[in-house]
Computed example of a mutant assay.
Amino acid sequence: MKDDLQNWQGIVGGAIAAIVLLIALNSFIIINPGEAGVLSILGKARDGALLEGIHIKPPFVSVVDIYDLTVQKFEVPAQSSTKDLQDLSARFAINFRLDPTQVVEVRRKQGTLQNIVSKIIAPQTQESFKIAAARRTVEEAITKRNELKQDFDQALGDRLDKYGILVLDTSVVDLTFSPEFARAVEEKQIAEQRAQRAVYVAQEAEQEAQADINRAKGRAEAQRLLAETLKAQGGQLVLQKEAIEAWRTGGAQMPKVLVMDKDSNSSVPFLFNLGNIQEAN
């Protein structure tokens, strides 16, 4: 009997120790850096977020929901109409994180992070894009993309701030427009390329014409200088030299008959037969 009593006491003692250990383990929670916890007792969220460190909580009747406070990134699609009633579609990459001071309200109103994205961020992204797109035409949305993004960031930041969501950065991953506008843009680019080609051809023709004028002026000036040289003393020698150079460079042979004026001052050669001279020799 004594042994049975001791065994029973050992079992009870072990059970009590296990219960105490279980209660102890359920009486505190560790919040890691970059996280925040929301304590709920019997399903009701308590005020004050639990930040990193060790926190005491009532065992068995309490639950702590952990929220990631680090930067989150999601891609969200959006569609809108521009000021000129053109369809415009975009896809935004949104970097955000939860405000630690608003985590309890997030837990009470939105619940999980997935709910935050689907029920808050996605619809507010759509509304913000409508605000930004409606302020400009589709062409301005493309050519002034930075301004479109600035308007979108402002609208989205204002809308998400009241939900405890801090927008850190956004980027336009994709921006597309209707097929009709795409064709119009392509036709406009083709027309601009043709116009630029026509301008280039006209400029090229004008430059070529100017080059011809310059060459003609150069030839006229050369002829004028040559004429003045021939009129001056010794001009006949210049003319004779030019004739000899022309024969030599042209590949011609020295003619057998030369014509030369009897006037020794003339630049025109007199006429005689070189062949006769060779036969006489």
Score class of each variant (00 low, 15 high):
A155T: 01
R108M: 05
S62F: 05
T101L: 14
S89N: 14
V173R: 08
G164V: 00
R183I: 14
T176V: 12
R136M: 15
R97N: 13
E105M: 01
K130T: 06
V71N: 09
T101I: 07
Q126T: 05
L166C: 13
A155C: 03
L69H: 11
D153T: 11
P100G: 05
K57E: 12
S62V: 09
V61N: 07
S128N: 03
A90I: 13
I56N: 03
S178G: 05
E139T: 08
L85A: 15
R183P: 01
D87L: 12
D84I: 11
L69G: 01
L160D: 02
R159T: 01
S178P: 02
D161V: 09
I94Q: 02
V64C: 05
L148E: 02
F92H: 12
H55M: 15
D161M: 11
F74A: 14
L175E: 11
N115Q: 13
I94H: 06
N95T: 09
K57P: 10
S62T: 01
L156T: 06
T82N: 03
G164Y: 00
Y67S: 02
I56M: 12
Q79L: 10
S81N: 13
D158G: 03
P100C: 05
D65R: 14
K119C: 06
A90R: 13
P123Y: 12
T112G: 06
V172Y: 03
Q102D: 11
K119V: 10
D87W: 04
V172T: 07
V173E: 08
V64F: 06
D174N: 05
V64L: 11
P123F: 08
L88C: 11
T170A: 15
T101V: 09
L50I: 14
V172M: 15
L148N: 01
S81Q: 15
L69N: 01
K144G: 07
I165E: 00
E180V: 12
G53A: 14
V138T: 10
S81A: 05
E75G: 07
L51R: 13
R183L: 12
T125H: 06
A90W: 04
K149N: 02
D153W: 01
R91E: 11
E52L: 11
N95R: 09
R107N: 08
K162E: 12
F129Q: 00
I66G: 02
Q72R: 08
T137H: 03
L88I: 15
F60R: 07
S62N: 05
T70M: 07
D169C: 01
S118K: 03
A93S: 10
T170Q: 13
E52I: 09
Q72L: 12
G53C: 10
D99Y: 05
N146G: 04
L168N: 04
A49P: 08
D161S: 11
A93H: 04
L168G: 05
T176Q: 10
I56K: 10
F92P: 07
G164P: 00
E139D: 10
Q114L: 10
T143A: 12
I56Q: 07
R107F: 08
L156E: 00
L156K: 00
F129S: 01
R135F: 10
F152V: 01
L88E: 06
P77V: 15
L168V: 04
V76K: 02
Q154M: 11
R136V: 11
D153L: 12
E147N: 10
L51P: 08
Q86E: 14
